[in-house]
Design a binder for these strands. Structure first.
Lengths: 217, 217
DNA sequence: TGTACATCAGTGAACGCGCGTTCACTGATGTAC
DNA sequence: TGTACATCAGTGAACGCGCGTTCACTGATGTAC
């Protein structure tokens, strides 16, 4: 089962068809039913696998950086996300592109999905805990906005982390995936140069800007 | 032709199948071939239509605000983009979701695609021209980064607009569509509350933050 | 005003294809005595 | 060590479906004389 899962994760789930996956594996399409009761379960397995791959990449990159080099850790996470996305475009599209019509992700996908965000949050929380974060974060949020953040509050030690930090974290999280999606889905054509290194330079520059925005380093 | 095009734009291009579109129109599938030589051409028409719809919405919203209310204009554009996306989820996914496999957008889509960005840029440029923009924008970019911005340079009066402003504009542009995509594609489940108004509150708060970041108002 | 003919919008049957899913099956591998 | 049987991984044919595309057609609308 595991090997089958790995194999199909390696190949692009581009057409995300059960038959195409079976073909990639050199099996009869019906053989896949020994492992997954239906196409949706296969899809779920692929999605979980994808989130885990991305999460691991981010975790590994972040772990390789000296603990008190906050900006380095931030950089590492962002870079790893983009790197993974460029290396696994089909899987990235599956995770962050248009939702598959008629498919509803089951609860099992939540934990893997949250791994990247967790790494990102950890960096910010560490920075906050050690007082390395710059910028004023104390400003309290209006009640309306505070309420909207209830779910994400459950992921962090609620009473010590200021709202403003969480909201900046969300902004940076959105920007990161926004940039990667724009690059992968072709929206920076005619915007950013096509010379080798142009996209890297643009991405890295924006990462530094985000780091500064959120007060890292 | 025009009426057919409108009709099918109203209906979701969810399954983006020629037959489904024909069904929506109450026509035989073969009748569509009188108007579009192939499925790809139909897709192109839908995409152009979508970009124009979004662009018009943004332009109209922005035009309704007093000229020197810079932040109001910025707000209007962001709000219109989100509003349009929520009202036309299928079309939005077609424009900003995963690329359709095997489909390459022809040159005709570029001009309509650029309309939203143009409105956004106009607001920033107006702010710059009238000196209403806050924050220091003078810092020159390293050569590497400057080079990567060559294509987008062609859209603005090259010598008067500082690099830093352009790069912040790109950041805000990415963040805007990142937020809308996250909301539409289900990534803020378990993050932002589901109570009525929670998402609105979150979005509007982030828009204000972006406005502040880019120095508007 | 009336007839003849061309143009046009749309029909409906058919094609070949890939899809998800089912089903009875085959042959290899393990376990029991 | 040898035989009998259960378990398991995978096969291959078949199903019904929706797809993009083609083709010869029909009937209404316009134009020419």
């Amino acid at each position: 089962v595991a090997t089958a899962r790995e194999h199909l994760a390696v190949h692009g789930a581009a057409g995300l068809s059960l038959r195409a996956v079976a073909r990639d594996l050199g099996m009869a399409s019906s053989a896949v039913y020994r492992y997954f009761p239906s196409r949706d379960d296969l899809l779920t397995a692929l999605i979980i696998d994808g989130y885990n791959g991305l999460g691991e990449a981010a975790e590994a990159a972040e772990a390789a950086v000296r603990r008190n080099d906050l900006r380095g850790r931030f950089r590492a996470v962002c870079g790893a996300v983009r790197r993974w996305a460029l290396d696994h475009p089909h899987e990235y599209a599956l995770l962050y592109g248009s939702p598959v019509p008629g498919y509803a992700a089951p609860q099992d996908t939540v934990a893997p999905a949250v791994r990247v965000s967790a790494v990102l949050i950890t960096v910010l929380l560490d920075g906050f805990a050690t007082g390395q974060l710059t910028g004023q974060l104390g400003a309290p949020l209006p009640r309306r906005q505070r309420g909207a953040l209830a779910p994400v509050r459950d992921w962090v030690p609620a009473d010590v982390v200021p709202d403003e930090l969480m909201v900046r974290g969300l902004m940076v999280w959105t920007e990161l995936f926004g940039m990667v999606s724009f690059e992968l889905f072709g929206h920076i054509h005619q915007v950013i140069g096509e010379e080798p290194g142009d996209r890297d330079a643009y991405f890295h520059a924006q990462v530094e800007r985000m780091a500064a925005f959120v007060g890292v380093g």
